[in-house]
Nucleic acid binder design. Structure first.
Lengths: 168, 168
DNA sequence: TCGTTTGTTCGGAGTGTACCGAACAAACTG
DNA sequence: CAGTTTGTTCGGTACACTCCGAACAAACGA
């Protein structure tokens, strides 16, 4: 109801975002900065963010760079065309997750799969435990790759529907 | 072909596992220990692992505990029933991933969702940007939760099939 | 032009984490 | 029973990471 209550609710959610940030391998400051931008009506400059978050200017500068690189926030040169830069949050969280998936998981699965395939190519089939293990791994990773590729072409709603409508 | 070549291939894959371990928030040593166990014909004791990996006994002890807790490896008291303990790798990687999902992602999504719902309950509807933002968030997280729940009941093959057979 | 504002870069302090070696507890083997 | 082997616990070191403040570069306004 009161302005205070709303601020408290907002603060709780931002704290939750700080925690989520850690899970995804980012710093707490990244979570807070994203959170503040998420709730802000208009894009914020670096001094604004310093004011809102209490972090040092340099911290804001560094964190906004990585957040921009990942795609969690967007960087806009202000209307005036001047040096001043404004940041806004990407609010389509599904898109963010897909990007993270693309960058981390998929890349990681792909390089692993390549390693496995190369290792396999170098080995003749003289039937040993090791070779079976490697073959096992390859199949699993091929499944992963396919799943990730397919999932990253769907929206959250579509993915949900795909799973809900699936009959075993 | 030669024993050496096979060792090199194995080493490459284990290095790749070290890297994957970091992505999943574990230490490099955890990746290597899992890798060695993955390729081992029979379960290994802590001294065996010291010999194979070069890590200190204490490191092996600590890391095996966390790996066991997560479910990546299994701990077996040896046949003799004595004090000696043997470890073997869980080779169904999909099961591992599901567990990690369950433990990290789902828990995190759930607590966030609870926070949002609580925040929402405290606020009346006096139509502000912030309220819309929170509502937006809630819907997204509800989708996530549903997706994660559904996916964690499927095997990799089933999930793959569900996605492949989905028509937009 | 000079002072002010904005953003980046750099070095450093504080903190957490991975790993090690030593000390210890528990069980086996002679 | 001593001596050995196995596993855990504890303190310490090395290293990476987060964040800060200061110095700097670039653009603005007087």
């Amino acid at each position: 109801m009161s302005k205070d209550d709303r601020a408290v609710a907002r603060e709780r959610i931002i704290e939750s975002m700080e925690q989520s940030a850690e899970v995804y391998g980012l710093s707490r400051s990244a979570g807070r900065i994203y959170g503040v931008l998420y709730f802000s009506k208009e894009p914020l400059s670096i001094p604004d963010l310093v004011e809102e978050t209490g972090y040092a200017k340099s911290t804001i500068s560094n964190v906004t760079r990585t957040l921009t690189r990942i795609g969690l926030i967007h960087r806009r040169s202000s209307e005036g065309g001047g040096r001043r830069v404004h940041y806004s949050a990407e609010r389509e969280i599904w898109i963010i997750l897909q990007d993270v998936f693309q960058q981390y998981i998929q890349r990681e699965v792909q390089t692993t799969l390549r390693t496995i395939q190369r290792a396999q190519a170098q080995l003749p089939d003289d039937n040993e435990t090791e070779l079976e293990r490697i073959e096992e791994l390859r199949e699993t990773y091929e499944d992963f790759q396919e799943i990730v590729t397919l999932a990253s072409n769907l929206t959250a709603a579509e993915l949900r529907e795909a799973l809900e409508s699936y009959e075993r």
